[in-house]
Amino acid sequence: MEDDLRVMNHPILGDLPEKKMVTIYYQGQPILAREGEPIAAALLAAGIKAFRKTVHRHEPRGVFCAIGRCTDCMMIVNGKPNVRTCVTFVEDGMQLEPQDGYGRRKVDGGDAK
């Protein structure tokens, strides 16, 4: 784990306000996230940069546009593939898997709806 990448103090925006922390799971590993933040922010804060592997070349990709335009940051979130993590917010207990290629739906008890 790298050093904390959260911006705790800021000359203009002030100290980072306290917020309820939730736990999300990246490949089963727990990560603390600030309630309401995008998944991508929580992962970057934890030093995780590669979010998925591409379809053809299986090359790593991460955050590129951060505003939901480019789709580089997609992951499998709670079993649902192709979720743009920069515009999807963390929820307590969320399960995140890096997506390899197109990704498949993985939800207990059959197809997700």
Binding site: L5, R6, L16, A45, E59, G62, F64, C65, D72
Partner: peptide, 25 residues
């Protein structure tokens, strides 16, 4: 140019100023 860590300047700006997370040092 597709390596994780290459991003739009606007993306970095969103991360630091809205989400308060450094994309790198």
């Amino acid at each position: 140019s597709t390596l994780p860590g290459v991003m739009g300047a606007g993306a970095a700006q969103t991360m630091i100023n809205v989400n308060r997370v450094l994309p790198g040092r």
